[in-house]
Design a protein around this nucleic acid. Structure first.
Lengths: 135, 135
DNA sequence: GCATGCACTTACCTTGAGGTAATCTTCACC
DNA sequence: GGTGAAGATTACCTCAAGGTAAGTGCATGC
């Protein structure tokens, strides 16, 4: 807890240095946040967190992703070095996707964020209702 | 460290329970990730982390946001109860934006994520270059 | 009396993320 | 020899996020 706050404080300081210079644009954080923001990347990372999965296995666990976006998002994650694609030379060829070490390291901070979302969603929802029904 | 991994492990377990049921859709996490994913929300939250700011002060610190999106994003954050808007009855009226308690609580997990991004960006960048230049 | 700053609002337009649907190849099963 | 599954790719289309630009009302400074 104390440790969390220190980490956050450290960050805020670094951020404000950047902000003071007006260069919050085109920073690494923006780059990463874009990824995290896209509709499917983090969903797939979390789904792969439990272990390697094949293409259609992933599709079954995240049913509302289209095949196109599943392929495309997996390619992007591969390109970023977060996911490894392994083709097994069987007949027919099987393809397995797994998190790399880099991908696994993302689970920790992402887990914090998702825990936060889980814990605070009711308050956000209440705030929305209050805002929408204010006179 | 040990603590981080435990937290992540807890999360992965909860996620996999949800994924097994195929209901990764329309969950609270998707809802929050959509916010975080939008181009400006988290940038403004982090900029406000250092203290209350006025409209044009924010605009100066995040120069590449348009006035329209600044207004709109602040409204959204207000609606979600992350940011409070305070109008001072001076002439001309001054308007100040500050993080609420809820907003401040977001800084902690968001800080972890941004630290991760900062620490690992070079590896991601290297992976991208390797991927793009592979034969 | 003109420009400038503050805090917006509105109308219009562009771009690209993502969806839909069709197609492909290879194999196994019946 | 027809069907279906695995693992994609491709063409086409839609929609909303976000950008641009202009305008508004009020006040101070030159």
């Amino acid at each position: 807890m104390q440790n969390d706050l220190e980490t956050a404080a450290t960050f805020v300081q670094r951020w404000s240095e950047a902000a003071a210079g007006g260069n919050t644009a085109r920073c690494t954080v923006r780059n990463i946040l874009d990824k995290i923001g896209d509709k499917w990347s983090m969903l797939l990372v979390m789904t792969l967190a439990t272990g390697a999965k094949r293409f259609n296995e992933l599709h079954r666990q995240v049913p509302d992703i289209s095949q196109k976006m599943l392929t495309q998002t997996l390619r992007d994650l591969q390109r970023d070095g977060l996911v490894a694609r392994q083709v097994f030379d069987t007949q027919p060829p099987a393809v397995e996707y797994r998190l790399t070490g880099l991908g696994q390291s993302l689970i920790v901070p992402l887990g914090f964020l998702i825990n936060w979302a889980d814990e605070h969603f009711s308050r956000i929802d209440a705030a929305r209702i209050a805002y929408d029904t204010r006179d």
